[in-house]
């Protein structure tokens, strides 16, 4: 359950950005979420809701955009993606190798933007 501390980090960053831009009411926060992070998007959203309940951020929309995992095959160098969440051991669609792929994308977890007024 480290989603709670991650949701708190999101809130901290949002609060900083709002203050920096002189904004008072949060409408939407958009988070980019890589499929290979050890976090569950639904749990993140629940934690965000719990942390913002009865605060001025209560009505904000928490939007998560998934970033699929992208690999480069250890054996033949083919780059490929998968829709399967969180898989690190996955056969290359080109040569079948499932060993030692390089992860090109999927470990990201960042706040892309906020909408506020």
């Amino acid at each position: 359950m480290h989603e709670m501390s991650i949701a708190q980090s999101i809130l901290d960053i949002v609060a900083q950005e709002m203050e920096k831009n002189g904004l008072k009411r949060l409408i939407r926060v958009k988070v980019k979420h890589g499929a290979l992070t050890n976090t569950v998007p639904e749990a993140l959203e629940t934690c965000f809701m719990a942390l913002t309940a009865k605060t001025p951020m209560e009505d904000a929309i928490f939007e998560i955009e998934a970033i699929p995992a992208k690999y480069k095959c250890f054996s033949c160098g083919t780059e490929f993606t998968t829709e399967e969440h969180g898989r690190l051991l996955i056969p290359c669609p080109s040569c079948g190798e499932d060993f030692g792929h390089t992860v090109l994308a999927g470990k990201e977890l960042y706040i892309e933007s906020i909408e506020a007024e």
Binding site: I6, S9, I10, D12, I13, V14, E17, N21, L23, V31, L109, Y110, I111, E112, S113, I114, E115, A116, E117
Partner: peptide, 14 residues
């Protein structure tokens, strides 16, 4: 107003 943030969620820890 839309603000582009692009900040790593775990930046404080990092």
């Amino acid at each position: 107003m839309k603000v582009s943030v692009v900040r790593n969620v775990l930046e404080a820890n990092e």
